[in-house]
Design a protein around this nucleic acid. Structure first.
Ligand SMILES: Nc1ccn([C@H]2C[C@H](O)[C@@H](COP(=O)(O)OP(=O)(O)OP(=O)(O)O)O2)c(=O)n1
Ligand SMILES: [Mg+2]
Length: 495
DNA sequence: GCGGATCAC
DNA sequence: TATGGTGATCCGC
């Protein structure tokens, strides 16, 4: 894609610009500002639930999880850089006083149920995204009430606090994408209202970091940064380039970011497409050990199948994470549904066997191509679709990639290089493959990287300011001849 | 349909 | 000592 970019960047793209402008105009005109969408997100959820049972935890840095992995942390701990999905033992290096509390899922489920009961009062069709998070469409409720959106959401949050002693943050806006971002604006224990008006929305997005948009993760952020796109507003300046470089789906998603468009309706009860189970363990490589794992996982998966009343799946897949952390996925599709644990185990073992020899730290098994959901609703009713939502291609961000063959490249000729997946092409097409030994000015590690890799490394280092500041502080404070390995491993984690 | 990858939570 | 688990989507074959 970099190569494509180099080729395109100096071309005259007035034609593309005109075409894109027309599309933008179309989308802008179709904007739906009639709905009032609210995103509610509980604050430091698991940690806050733990603080209910032990209020002394509120005063100290605390995280929930184990030495292997933390699920979340309270806000005191976040000041030290302790976050979700961080190994506990590394978090302890950032914050030696950190107290780690084991997970208590039944408590989180109970708290979640209370919160959801409140959601249901204001929107019976609310859309839960996880135990601690949901979207509500408040349009109907507001039409029967004198309250302003802000007053109503304040009331909902008050009610949550009364019922659970837990605090929530909320965002109110014209669609899900915006409401989600707004809920983060005044977190914790706050709310933000973005008026359902075009001007307010355009002002809001113009300066908004693209990374705030759900669906734009670390990788996508970096790629867009390469194209000088840091905010949603930047998308307009680079619209022609983006049109040429991105797939139609990705480009459409970018325009939606620029315009602040998003879905307003909730596709409840969409069919599940796969069911899986995976486990991490200390390294295994002996075939007998691997096959024993297969049996354990097949048993778990079979139970889960029954619990969810799923007949089976036609596609059986495995996932192996090597001790190098490389991941391999393999799958095979059959003409009939697989469901018995013995059948699952047999097929999975065949798939595993082909990968031998391997040394792995994780094994996962998965069934997909599941049967269409059984409606326990009999009779002809089901033939009259309860179509609450006819949105085709609704909320599909993800996967920035090169456009297969843009309309223009068809005109301009020649089968250009087969466009590869974005990340692959960045690695492969990097114009200066010369690997150079350099020393990172931030983490002081010597690195053997090409130019692009080095820049990525710098980005990472700069993104982790909090972590590094604390690390350096610790290195200074502690006796000089100390764990070189500890500092290194922590930085490796943020590679 | 397959495999790699990204993303949310 | 120690770097999770589940499900979805997208891309290019
Ligand atoms: N990678 C992750 C992210 C989150 N969670 C769990 C723990 C969180 O408590 C819960 C909710 O996720 P959030 O992203 O909403 O994080 P918190 O609610 O903990 O914090 P906050 O919303 O205040 O930022 O999901 C997890 O297990 N693994
Ligand atoms: Mg939360």
């Amino acid at each position: 894609m970099i190569r494509q970019y180099d080729k395109i960047k100096d071309m005259d793209l007035s034609f593309e610009t005109k075409l894109v402008d027309h599309k933008i105009n179309e989308m802008d005109t179709g904007r739906d500002l009639t709905q009032c969408i609210c995103h509610v997100d509980m604050d430091a959820f698991y940690a806050s639930v733990e603080e209910l049972d032990d209020p002394s935890l509120k005063e100290i840095p605390m995280a929930v999880g184990g030495m292997h992995m933390l699920c979340t942390s309270n806000y005191k701990a976040r000041q030290f850089g302790v976050r979700s999905a961080m190994p506990g033992y590394l978090a302890l290096k950032l914050c030696p006083q950190l107290k780690i509390i084991p997970l208590h899922f039944p408590k989180y489920r109970a708290a979640s149920a209370k919160v959801r009961a409140i959601f249901a009062k204001y929107d019976p069709s609310f859309l839960p995204m996880s135990l601690d998070e949901a979207y509500l469409n408040l349009t109907n409720y507001l039409s029967t009430s004198e309250l302003t959106p802000e007053q109503l959401v304040q009331q909902i949050r008050d009610e949550i606090q009364q019922e659970t002693q837990l605090t929530a943050s909320a965002g109110i806006a014209a669609n899900r994408m915006l409401a989600k971002i707004c809920s983060d604006f005044n977190k914790p224990n706050g709310q933000y209202f973005l008026p359902m008006e075009r001007e307010a929305i355009m002002k809001f997005t113009s300066n908004l970091s693209i990374r705030k948009v759900s669906g734009v993760g670390r990788v996508t952020e970096r790629v867009l940064q390469t194209l000088d796109v840091k905010t949603c507003g930047d998308i307009l300046h680079r619209r022609a380039i983006l049109y040429r470089l991105l797939s139609p789906i990705s480009f459409q998603f970018m325009l939606k970011c620029y315009l602040g468009l998003g879905s307003t309706n909730f596709n409840l009860e969409s069919d599940r497409k796969s069911i899986s189970v995976e486990r991490t363990f200390s390294a295994l490589s002996k075939p007998d050990d691997l096959y024993r794992k297969v049996d354990e996982l097949a048993e778990l998966l079979a139970v889960d199948l029954g619990r969810n009343q799923i007949q089976g799946g036609k596609t059986v897949g495995i996932k192996l994470k090597l001790t190098s952390f490389d991941v391999r996925v393999r799958s095979k599709t059959y003409p009939s549904y697989i469901s018995k644990k013995e059948d699952i185990a047999r097929i999975v073992k065949e798939l595993v066997q082909k990968e031998l020899p391997v040394s792995i730290r994780l094994m996962g098994i998965r069934l997909s191509s599941l049967p269409p959901k059984v409606d326990d609703d009999h009779g002809v009713k089901k033939y009259f679709k309860k179509r609450k939502n006819t949105d085709a291609g609704e909320e599909q961000p993800r996967k920035i990639s090169t456009v297969p063959s843009s309309p223009v490249s068809v005109l301009t000729s020649t089968s250009v290089t087969p466009d590869t997946h974005l990340t692959a092409s960045i690695a492969a097409n990097e114009n200066a493959p010369s690997i150079v030994a350099v020393t990172c000015p931030i983490c002081s590690r010597s690195l053997a990287l090409d130019n692009h890799q080095f820049n990525q490394h710098l980005d990472e280092c700069l993104n982790k300011v909090t972590v590094k500041a604390i690390l350096q502080q610790q290195q200074q404070n502690q006796s000089p001849p100390q764990d070189q390995t500890q500092g290194r491993s922590l930085l490796d984690y943020y590679r």
